[in-house]
Write a protein that binds this DNA or RNA. Structure first.
Lengths: 335, 335
DNA sequence: CGGAATGATTGAATCGTTTCACGTGGGGGG
DNA sequence: CCCCCCACGTGAAACGATTCAATCATTCCG
């Protein structure tokens, strides 16, 4: 059984292909009786539109691509989920590409996506050297929206979260609970997110007269958090609270403290960042700074469609969201 | 700057479009000098192949779609990662669709994917009522590989993991550690995965003379695990170990036990299932039964490409993987 | 030196839709 | 009774790449 085309349907229904096309795309323009006949033929033959042909004529696809640094990272999956509904209601589907923080992979994916003439692109670029390739896309009329990176640097719309403010929220929460000495644990300071969170934290600590000690974790994951906290415990007067640059690090810190018999939150409070699903699932549910992830995705998609709708006259927008503190057991003690 | 076509390139290089096509697809068939001229023109014009046109001619796209129940579930993201490399080396990109366990969404996505004439489809169907729609796809020459569901039921290839064996592994591990009474915590028994894991566990327990008590969690998540374990603690002689149908439930159990001051593993051991990344990240690292997730994806993609290569003469294969036990701190005590 | 073999290039047909300028037939208004 | 307009349909021209038979030069061999 070969797939049948409009021509087959037209023949079967005794009409021209133009009419079949009308039944599909502007049903109000065709007489009831004819419509019925055509629809019957479609059903009988099991006809399915060929999107390639459609796209060819239209010049673009209806699909939106999103290129993320890591599909397994809950942050990105939530962003994807936020973006999906809009794309679907525009008749397209979301193509998710995992660059794995690898520039070459990212580049290859951008090439493929450009060949596919995607409607638009949501991307968290691997680093600033992607800028040039992205400009090429917009030059070829493929709008690009940056997610959580490089806001303002490029001729694109962007969505991001205010990390400095997130750092402030965390520090303020700890200060209010009476902590006089806190540790910050975060990965390489070259990562803007980490630097911003630390900056916000430092700002509030200085204001409130809280002693702040920064530990550099080898990486932003569980192992990094565990190691850093062990290093911290060796200090003569260890801080009574740790603020971690993300929840993975915080889970690592919790693990390290548990191993050393340090009670959380009684002897040491923990506060994480991102509020991933597993923050609440930890043995001691983690206080965390939540980013509006789904909304990030939703807004990114909105900006994309706005840019498409406005065409030439579009001016780029950079939307910044404010994070929010979610208090749980890991900081539930006042000193 | 309008996007330029092969015709433009041909004109710029002073050759015919056929030659340009050859430079792109069979470079060995065109003279050095000509090739150089054409490539120069391509670079100068910033020409990018139009995949729609290509697909139209070829009759199919080079993209593979994967429809999952939940993009945020680490199980599926790992499957996606396993499948990606193969698809990329075939010149395509992976379209990830999240059905969200919603039949209507799944249906809509299948329609779109069929219109797009995807090369093939990897899917974990929402339920058996998807079978009919999937058969329609194969009838239209779009091969389908089932992932972790409905193996053998349908005229498709499939990959799955032996859950009964996984249950046996867990029970054996606990029996070896000297536990005489264990609890199973799992969601509705109507889920085949849950039923199989329990069956395997029961089999070994009976064999080894271990008392087994099954608790039904309201759902397969953290809250479910916490509630079930609280119920368990109310028993006069509570079991000394719990086997959870998945890691989320196990994390919930750990949380519940921690809240009630029960020490893990000294007073109660825990063993989970899936070995998600966060199992190792728990305050007490969780012993878990690992499914070869990436390999599941890789193999699924392989089966897909085999089916494509073999064409008509293809006979469907059902590949079943054996899970593997990963021992960690949460069971590291012999009674 | 004729003819065959080899190599490079061309041109045109084709894939399946969409779109639009153009019939065609019937009904209503003048 | 004529004309115009409307509502439906038609047919053919795009869209941009691939493919293959046909053409044109060369080179090689006897």
């Amino acid at each position: 059984m070969t797939t049948s085309s409009m021509k087959d349907v037209a023949r079967a229904a005794g009409v021209s292909v133009g009419t079949v096309s009308n039944v599909l795309n502007r049903p109000e323009a065709v007489a009831e009786e004819t419509k019925r006949r055509v629809q019957a033929a479609i059903a009988r033959l099991g006809y399915v539109r060929n999107d390639s042909a459609r796209q060819l004529r239209a010049g673009r696809s209806r699909n939106v691509a999103i290129v993320v640094l890591d599909v397994a990272n809950p942050f990105f999956t939530d962003v994807v989920r936020g973006a999906e509904p809009l794309v679907h209601s525009a008749g397209g589907v979301v193509t998710v590409c995992d660059s794995g923080e690898d520039l070459r992979r990212e580049q290859r994916q951008l090439e493929i996506l450009e060949e596919q003439r995607v409607l638009g692109l949501l991307i968290t670029p691997v680093d600033d050297s992607s800028a040039e390739r992205l400009e090429r896309l917009t030059a070829h009329d493929i709008p690009v929206v940056l997610v959580d990176r490089g806001a303002g640097l490029h001729p694109h719309c962007s969505v991001a979260v205010d990390d400095v403010h997130g750092g402030r929220l965390a520090a303020r929460h700890l200060a209010e609970r009476g902590h006089a000495s806190v540790a910050f644990i975060g990965g390489p300071p070259s990562i803007p997110q980490v630097a911003d969170r630390l900056a916000g934290c430092r700002e509030v600590c200085e204001e409130a007269g809280v002693r702040l000690e920064a530990f550099t974790s080898v990486s932003l994951n569980v192992a990094g958090g565990r190691q850093a906290v062990e290093q911290m415990l060796r200090l003569p007067d260890a801080p009574t609270a740790v603020f971690c640059a993300n929840d993975l690090v915080a889970l690592g810190a919790l693990q390290g403290l548990t191993m050393h018999g340090v009670k959380v939150p009684e002897e040491c409070a923990i506060i994480g960042y991102d509020d991933i699903e597993f923050a609440a699932a930890a043995a001691v549910p983690l206080t965390s700074v939540r980013q509006p992830r789904a909304q990030l995705g939703r807004t990114a998609a909105q900006l994309l469609f706005e840019e498409i709708a406005e065409g030439k006259g579009h001016t780029h927008r950079n939307v910044v969201f404010q994070p929010e503190l979610v208090a749980r057991a890991s900081t539930a003690v006042d000193l």
